[in-house]
Design a protein around this nucleic acid. Structure first.
Lengths: 348, 348
DNA sequence: CTCATCGCAGAAAGCGCTTGCTGTCACCCG
DNA sequence: CGGGTGACAGCAAGCGCTTTCTGCGATGAG
C-alpha cells in the first residue's frame, strides 16, 4: 500500500541500505547509482517514514517551541523568528526541521506535560519562551525536566526567560528590570511624581522584575512608593482597563500610569479616555514590549522595545548549534526606551 | 542508558506487551497488574519513545497546522483555537496530541514542502489556514498532495480557506465576498459614493473575493467602479499607508476608503492623519477581520468580524473527528459587520 | 605478477514499540 | 465434578529505517 524504502530499492536495483544512504547523503555513493535511486524515488512518489527513521537513527528533526499564548503577538513574533532559523522549508539551514509550537497557556502543568511530549518525540531541540512562575516546587520540577532533556542530547534554549542554572540550558534573558527602571525614570524626568503602576499577575518573575525596576526608578529619585499606586492583573487589555479605573478610584491625582505591557497599556488608555481624561494632557501612559500595534495607538505609545525577533532568531540559531552559546550560557538582552506621544509633561 | 518498555516490564515482572497495554489502555489489564506497571513506570521515570510507537502503530499523534505567518494575530488566533481543540495537554480531548505549527510565509512551495514533511511524520491530521494562490499549477500540486494525505488516512481540514474539491478535505470557508459587499453597502448607506479600495496582493483568492464583494456592493447601488480607486498591496500596515497616499494622489475627493484587512486599515488611518485629514470627519475608513486591536484604534475601526476563534475551534474538532463535517464537506462561515467610529456620513 | 588499498554496495542486526494469536488459569453452570 | 467460558498475560512477528561490518572488483605499488 504505502511505498517503502525497499520498494524504491527494488526499482532502482540496489539494496535498501544504498537508498537510505542516497537520501541521507552521508556516505559515498556512486553518482550513477544515486541518480538511479533518485529517479526511482521520484517515480514511486516515495515519502520517507519519519517515525521509522527517527527510531532507527535515534534522533528526530522535531524542534519544540513553548509559548504562553500563540495568539499573542509577543509570542507570535518570537516563535516566528525562532522558526525561521531552525531550518524548515523556510530558512535554508540544512535538513528540513519541523517546529512544534506548544501553547502552554501560562500553565506550569501544561508546560511540564509538553516537555514530556517533546521528550517522548526525542526532539532535537527545545526553545522555551514566556514567563516563569515563582513557585519553588514547580521550578524544581521544571529544572529536573530540563536537565533530563539536555542529558538526553536535546538542546534547550530559554528565550526571554530567566536562566535555569544547573540544567545545561542556554538562557537569553530580557532585562526587564533595567528597562522598567529606565522607563520610570523617563517619566520622572518629565516631572511626574505620582505614577500608577499596573502590574502583571503576582507570582510571576517577569511581573516582579518589571515592578522592581519601576520601584528602583522611583527610589533613585527619592520618591516613596505608595502601595495604593500598584494594581495587579493579567497581561491583557481588559485587565488594564479595569486596573486603570481602580487606580483612578484610589488616587485621582496620578499624572502617569505605567503598564506591565503594551496590551495592558492600551486598556489603560481606553479607561482613561472613557473617564474623560486626555493622554498625555491629563495622564501620561507607558507600556512595555513595543509590539507592532503600539506605534499605531493614538497617541503612539511610549514603551520599552524588546528585540523579540532578534532574540528569537538568536535562540533558534543556538538551538540549531549554528551559533555559539553566550559565555556561561547566559546572556542578558536589553530593551530600548521608545519615547512617543503617550508621555508628556504632567498637567498643572 | 535510556529506559525502555522492556526495562519497565522487567521491573514490574510482566511482559512488554502488558506494559504497552497499560500505557495505551485499550486492552483489559487487571487492576493489580496495572498498578504494578504504573509504579515501575514512575520509579524508572520512563518516557515512551514516540517514534517507535508511531512506527509500530502506524499512526502518530502529531497534528499539523499550516499558517501564513504566526506573528500575525489573524493566524495566531486561529492556530490557538485549533490547538485548544486538538487535545494536547490543554483541552482534555483524549490522547495527548502535539500541534505542529508551520509558517509558510505565504509561499506555495513551502506550503507543499511542509505538507510533505507532515506526510512523512504520518500526521494524524492537518489543518490548513491562510490564502490560496490563484496559480493553476500550484493548485493542482496542492490538490494532489491533499488527496494523497487524505488517502493515507490523514484528516485534512481547510480553515478559512476555499474548498479543494475532489481531495477529500473538509473546508470551512470565510464568506469574504459577502462580508465585503455588506461593508461597502454600509458606507453607501451612509451616503458615500466615491470609495477607495486598498486591496491585497493580486493573484490571491482572498484578495479577489473581497474586491468582488466590494464591487458587487457598488454595483448594487448603481455606482460605477472607477479603476483609479483601487490599489493593490500587501496585507500589512505599511502597504496600507502607501496605498492611501496613492489613492489620495489619484483622487483627493474620496470620502471613504475600504481596506483589505484591519492592519491595512490602520496604515490607511495613519496616512490620512499624516495628510491632515480627520476620520471619519473627512474620510471614513473600514477594515476587515476585526482583530483585537481594531477596537482600540482611535477612532475604533468599522470592520467585518470574522469568527476566527470559532472557526478554528470547529476545524480542530473536525480534524479530531469529534465533530461531523458539514454536509458536502463544505461550510461557509459568515462575517459580521461591526459598525464603529471610523465610518460616518461623508463631509459636505 | 602479487598483494595491499580503496571505493562502493549489500547483508543483517537491530531501534523500541504494538498487536494478533495463543495459552493459562479461575470460575461458573449444568 | 467436568467441560465450557472469560479474563488476562505472554510470545513473537513485524513496523520501515539506519548503520556496522563484510565483500568484492578495480587500481596502484612493489
Amino acid at each position: 500500500m504505502t511505498v517503502t524504502l525497499a520498494d524504491v530499492a527494488a526499482r532502482a536495483q540496489v539494496s535498501p541500505a544504498t537508498v537510505s544512504r542516497v537520501l541521507n547523503g552521508n556516505y559515498p555513493v556512486a553518482a550513477s547509482t544515486r541518480e538511479r535511486v533518485l529517479k526511482a524515488v521520484d517515480e514511486l512518489d516515495y515519502v520517507l517514514n519519519g517515525p521509522a527513521s527517527a527510531l532507527a537513527a535515534a534522533t528526530s528533526d522535531l524542534v519544540g517551541i513553548l509559548v504562553n499564548d500563540i495568539a499573542d503577538p509577543f509570542f507570535g513574533i518570537m516563535a516566528s523568528a525562532i522558526q525561521s532559523e531552525i531550518g524548515g522549508p523556510g530558512g535554508r539551514a540544512g535538513g528540513e526541521r519541523l517546529a512544534v509550537v506548544c501553547n502552554t497557556g501560562g500553565s506550569p502543568e501544561r508546560e511540564l506535560t509538553y516537555l514530556t511530549l517533546l521528550q517522548r518525540q526525542r526532539a532535537a531541540a527545545v526553545v522555551l519562551t514566556g514567563g516563569v512562575v515563582e513557585d519553588a516546587a514547580h521550578r524544581a520540577a521544571m529544572d529536573a525536566k530540563l536537565r533530563k532533556l539536555t542529558e538526553a542530547g536535546t538542546r534547550v534554549v530559554l528565550c526571554g526567560r530567566p536562566p535555569a542554572p544547573g540544567t545545561g540550558a542556554v538562557a537569553l534573558a530580557f532585562d526587564n528590570r533595567g528597562g522598567a527602571q529606565e522607563l520610570t525614570e523617563h517619566l520622572i524626568g518629565l516631572g511626574h511624581r505620582r505614577i500608577g503602576y499596573v502590574a502583571g499577575p503576582e507570582g510571576q518573575m517577569t511581573t516582579r522584575h518589571r515592578l522592581e525596576g519601576h520601584r528602583a526608578g522611583l527610589a533613585a529619585h527619592g520618591i516613596a512608593a505608595d502601595p495604593r499606586w500598584v494594581v495587579h492583573g493579567r497581561y491583557d487589555r481588559q485587565a488594564g482597563y479595569e486596573a486603570a479605573l481602580e487606580l483612578l478610584r484610589r488616587d485621582a491625582s496620578l499624572t502617569a500610569v505605567v503598564a506591565a505591557n503594551d496590551s495592558v497599556a492600551l486598556g489603560v488608555c481606553a479607561a482613561l479616555r472613557d473617564s474623560g481624561l486626555g493622554i498625555p494632557g491629563d495622564v501620561s501612559v507607558a507600556g512595555f514590549d513595543d509590539l507592532p500595534f503600539s506605534v499605531d495607538a493614538v497617541p503612539a505609545l511610549t514603551t520599552v522595545r524588546l528585540p523579540l525577533a532578534e532574540a528569537g532568531a538568536r535562540a533558534g540559531r543556538i538551538a540549531m548549534g549554528r551559533e555559539e552559546a553566550p559565555p556561561g550560557g547566559i546572556a542578558s538582552v536589553r530593551g530600548e526606551l521608545m519615547v512617543r506621544g503617550s508621555s508628556g509633561v504632567p498637567r498643572g
